[in-house]
């Protein structure tokens, strides 16, 4: 990050707030099915909380804290999202003929909730990782 900050209050507030936001983002993510929220919003919120950390602390410190390469999270999220679709093919035998209708799986009973949330996890990861990758890359460039 370009600017160094040593505002003590800021640092302490951030420490708490960032994790509050993170928690809230996870709540939003799970609330998504019935209330406002969901994969997109949760993902963006998570990205915001991590960004706040980046704004406050040194980049190196965060890399120690969160040793994740966000770039790998993008395909991981996509794989999860696409993969749940294939689950549909496996279970939804009547829909095999029009196989791109696999997202209609929740039509049939029990898998419904599980796959929808799984799918949303994919979206969540993809969105959060993409947003982070974009910003961190531009910020990290010298």
């Amino acid at each position: 990050m370009k600017w160094k900050t040593n505002n003590l209050l800021f640092i302490h507030v951030t420490r708490i707030v960032a994790f509050l936001i993170l928690t809230f983002s996870i709540y939003l993510f799970f609330a998504g099915h019935d209330d406002p929220g969901g994969g997109f919003i949760g993902g963006l919120m998570t990205a915001c909380s991590v960004l706040l950390l980046y704004l406050t602390f040194d980049k190196r410190k965060i890399d120690e804290m969160l040793p994740i390469n966000y770039v790998y999270l993008i395909p991981a999220g996509l794989l999860i999202a696409f993969g749940t679709g294939f689950l549909g093919i496996l279970f939804a035998d009547p829909y095999l003929t029009q196989y791109f209708d696999y997202f209609t799986l929740p039509w049939i009973g029990e898998f419904e909730l599980a796959t929808a949330v799984l799918f949303d996890v994919g979206i969540y990861l993809g969105v959060a990782a993409s947003a982070l990758v974009i910003i961190v890359t531009i910020a990290g460039d010298e």
Partner: peptide, 30 residues
């Protein structure tokens, strides 16, 4: 779909393929 937030249901159930592809676009941009 067992969901009460219709916008989200549209996104993850009815039109899920669109949504995946959209995240794909975002990923490509990243």
């Amino acid at each position: 779909a067992g969901g009460y937030n219709m916008v989200n249901v549209v996104l993850v159930d009815f039109r899920a393929l669109d949504t995946v592809l959209e995240v794909l676009v975002l990923g490509v941009a990243a």
